[in-house]
Design a protein around this nucleic acid. Structure first.
Length: 287
DNA sequence: GACCAGGGTAACT
DNA sequence: AGTTACCATGGT
């Protein structure tokens, strides 16, 4: 029996569909028009949006303790967007296309494993693999309409598994990477609590000691879990759109990194999400 | 069947 | 220091 308590919150510059479907998170399920189930921070949330208000099926206390921060609803995105729109017409168009994106505050450990899994995979498949991983090693949170939902497993919960176990879940060569992450985080060799106090370069160096974590995955963790808005993850889509828009299709990855870190400024990460969503939907640069 | 997917690593020039 | 094959797996 799912809880009946409902909380209604007024929102602006927020769209639940755009925020969940823009590629930053994987544990959500569409159950209706502008209505979703979300699993995060060991909780299952049913959320529905009607224009400028959202309904959350939880206690008000839980909204303030978990979801307001998770959806980044305490921040003023209006003024941030105004600054970004002024950069150039491309960015302005991307923002106008999906103006309701917000950068989530996801759990660092879950984000680390999720983006290790994400490499060379499409989003539906990433979602499926994370689902199986959670169903196998996580805790049962609750059932919704007969369907069980599981929390994302902790390092301790995943420690019982060996590389072969992960391979059997179809994680392929990522199995070894996940084992290394469990080892390093479990042993405290990489302390995810301390990342917040580090400079960007320090955090990058620390995260990249884990096998299977390169620049792009580390950047995603810093942006999607730690809210580092200045970080600009560069994947194949962003690379294509930056090449097409700002370099006439001729620039090396290094040139692009240098350009982005200077050009987009303190809200680069949010700009990246607008551009990513736009490029992916419009298939910019795709053959 | 070839080719690609929100990449990273190791082994090459 | 900058490129390139290879990595498991599923989808088109």
């Amino acid at each position: 029996m799912y809880k009946n308590t409902k909380v209604t919150i007024a929102v602006k510059d927020f769209n639940i569909e755009q925020t969940l479907e823009c590629g930053q998170c994987f544990r959500f399920k569409k159950i209706g028009h502008m209505e979703y189930l979300v699993v995060a921070h060991n909780k299952l949330l049913r959320i529905k949006q009607m224009e400028n208000k959202i309904q959350l099926y939880c206690e008000l206390e839980e909204y303030h303790a978990v979801w307001a921060h998770y959806f980044d609803l305490l921040k003023d995105y209006c003024s941030i967007k105004e600054q970004l729109v002024r950069k150039d017409d491309y960015l302005a168009e991307a923002i106008a296309y999906k103006p309701g994106i917000r950068i989530l505050h996801q759990d660092p450990w879950e984000t680390l494993i999720s983006f290790i899994i994400s490499q060379n995979k499409q989003i539906p498949h990433i979602k499926q693999l994370i689902e199986v991983l959670s169903n196998t090693y996580g805790d049962l949170i609750e059932c919704y309409q007969g369907q069980p939902y599981y929390s994302f497993p902790t390092p301790t919960q995943m420690e019982v598994a060996c590389e072969e176990d992960f391979r059997q879940l179809k994680l392929g060569y990522r199995a070894g990477y996940i084992c290394d992450a469990i080892q390093k985080v479990g042993m405290g060799e990489v302390n995810l609590e301390l990342i917040n106090q580090m400079t960007y370069e320090e955090a990058l160096r620390c995260l990249m000691t884990i096998k299977g974590v390169g620049r792009k995955v580390a950047d995603c963790i810093l942006l999607f879990a730690y809210g580092r808005f200045e970080v600009f993850p560069i994947d194949v889509w962003i690379q294509r759109i930056i090449q097409a828009y700002y370099f006439e299709n001729k620039a090396s990855l290094k040139e692009i990194i240098t350009f982005c870190s200077h050009y987009f400024g303190q809200y680069a990460g949010l700009a990246q999400q607008y551009l990513f969503y736009y490029a992916r939907d419009k298939k910019i640069g795709k053959l």
